[in-house]
Design a protein around this nucleic acid. Structure first.
Lengths: 201, 201
DNA sequence: TGTATATAATTAAACAATGAATTAATTTAT
DNA sequence: ATAAATTAATTCATTGTTTAATTATATACA
């Protein structure tokens, strides 16, 4: 039941936002009484924290693991990232909307929490690894590593029939492009906002 | 006062979401009593509708106007788009977060309303115009117009010191890069989601 | 010009509905 | 029979909404 409550909660949090979600509707979606939420989590804040600890952070750790185990071959890196994002999004459909609403957005309720727990910025990691690959000569000189990241995103958005190489890299099985889109946008946004903030300080 | 209420409302709607914003906090931010909202708008739904009609749609029309008057010279098109987005975002800082939260996001409260009113997808318009420019021979063959759109976004996100031409195109005066980012993400997301939906049908 | 009067703008107060949070009682499982 | 799980019922704060009363603003008239 605890798990079902977490399921219902994260689904609604992602769909309409944390602030706009009532404990009643969460309990209702799980088919139980609102008192169950108090029984298992205490209050809304601790429910949210449980969601972060038990659902959000593990997923981010998974994505990070993909990057860390990808070596520094740029093509493997890109493919691993695309595939990893695709699989994660396919199995956790709540991630993109939740990320956009509550982490990426200004005033998002999870923004500080997620950032404080030193979740690494995935796009930043990607960019660093591309830079490293370039330093190792595995990336043709003159191609800015950052442009690679950009292309990664762009080619996730557009089905580019005229670029077969890229298309092969981004043929992430049967995951719809718009799902890929939303998640990639969210990830990108996350990293960019942080990068800007760090640059300013 | 009506205008000040709209200001306060759109600011909070953008910042914490429509569902999570109370009429009391809107009135409080405007320094008046909640009854003023009833006096001017009736209820929350009509307040939201007024916000759409009087604030959101005019801004979108402005952006569309820039595109329509840009001709089909690709460089002018890109520059005009970047400048237009920059100016709009600078004068309407609530647009990016509101767009991400309530239009782009699944379950966003403004999603259906905005789409129903046949707001044109800016990225789609951009892509079409690039295609036209390419057909007219003004764009070097082999460069997919869609990639241009992607690069436009990418170069808005990353300060690409190694690509002076692009950098010149995107030197949008003193508009911070992260502001450009958020809005571009939002615009992009809007267009992409619609494009995918139309492709599927 | 000054004053009365009507209209607009604003507040104060209150209502019903919903929300979060808690407690005690009841069921279910072990 | 003991503990865990679940519900019913309750409390208190907040929200959306409305009404009546009050203040300001404009308009008309002497």
């Amino acid at each position: 039941m605890r798990a079902r409550l977490l399921d219902a909660a994260i689904e609604q949090f992602a769909h309409v936002g944390i602030g706009a979600t009532s404990l009643r509707s969460i309990a209702g979606a799980a088919g139980v009484t609102p008192a169950m939420l108090h029984y298992y989590f205490g209050d809304k804040a601790r429910l949210t924290q449980a969601l972060i600890d038990e659902r959000l952070l593990p997923v981010l750790a998974t994505l990070r693991g993909w990057l860390e185990s990808a070596g520094d071959d740029p093509l493997a890196l890109v493919e691993g990232f695309a595939r990893g994002v695709g699989e994660v999004v396919a199995s956790h459909p709540w991630l993109p909307p939740l990320w956009v609403r509550e982490v990426l957005s200004e005033g998002g309720a999870l923004r500080d929490v997620v950032f404080q727990q030193s979740v690494p910025s995935l796009p930043q990691m990607l960019a660093q690894r591309f830079a490293k690959a370039q330093a190792n000569g595995r990336l043709q000189a003159g191609l800015d590593p950052r442009l690679l990241v950009v292309s990664l995103i762009g080619l996730t958005l557009f089905p580019v029939a005229s670029a077969p190489v890229w298309k092969r890299l981004f043929a992430v099985d049967d995951i719809p492009a718009d799902v890929m889109l939303k998640h990639t946008l969210a990830l990108l946004g996350h990293g960019m906002v942080r990068a800007e903030a760090e640059e300013a300080s």
